[in-house]
Computed example of a mutant assay.
Amino acid sequence: MVRLPLTPADVRRGQRLGALLRRARGSATVLAVALEAGVSPETLRKIESGRVATPSFPTVAAVADVLGLSLDVLWAEVARPEGAAAPAGAGPAAADRLVS
Rank of each mutant, 00 (worst) to 15 (best):
21 L>S: 10
5 P>A: 05
3 R>Y: 04
31 L>Q: 15
5 P>H: 05
44 L>F: 13
81 P>L: 10
26 G>K: 06
1 M>D: 04
97 R>C: 06
90 A>I: 00
93 A>S: 07
54 T>D: 10
41 P>F: 12
50 G>E: 11
67 L>I: 10
100 S>L: 14
52 V>W: 08
78 V>Q: 01
44 L>W: 10
95 A>R: 01
72 D>Y: 01
4 L>N: 09
40 S>A: 10
86 A>P: 09
8 P>D: 03
22 R>G: 02
80 R>N: 01
50 G>S: 04
53 A>L: 03
36 E>K: 15
27 S>D: 06
12 R>W: 06
5 P>D: 01
11 V>D: 02
40 S>L: 10
19 A>V: 11
20 L>Y: 09
63 V>M: 03
26 G>N: 06
90 A>R: 04
83 G>L: 03
25 R>Q: 10
13 R>V: 05
28 A>G: 13
33 V>N: 14
80 R>K: 03
78 V>C: 00
60 V>C: 04
44 L>D: 11
78 V>F: 00
24 A>I: 03
65 D>W: 14
8 P>K: 06
5 P>K: 05
38 G>E: 14
20 L>G: 08
35 L>Y: 10
59 T>L: 03
1 M>E: 02
98 L>W: 05
4 L>Y: 01
100 S>H: 05
38 G>P: 13
55 P>K: 01
29 T>G: 15
32 A>H: 14
14 G>D: 10
51 R>V: 03
16 R>G: 02
69 L>H: 06
2 V>A: 09
75 W>F: 11
5 P>N: 05
24 A>C: 08
18 G>F: 05
13 R>G: 01
94 A>H: 07
30 V>S: 10
9 A>V: 11
29 T>H: 12
17 L>S: 06
71 L>D: 04
13 R>S: 01
87 P>M: 02
89 G>Q: 10
47 I>A: 00
9 A>E: 08
100 S>Q: 09
37 A>P: 09
98 L>G: 08
7 T>F: 00
3 R>T: 14
3 R>G: 06
40 S>F: 07
1 M>Y: 01
59 T>W: 06
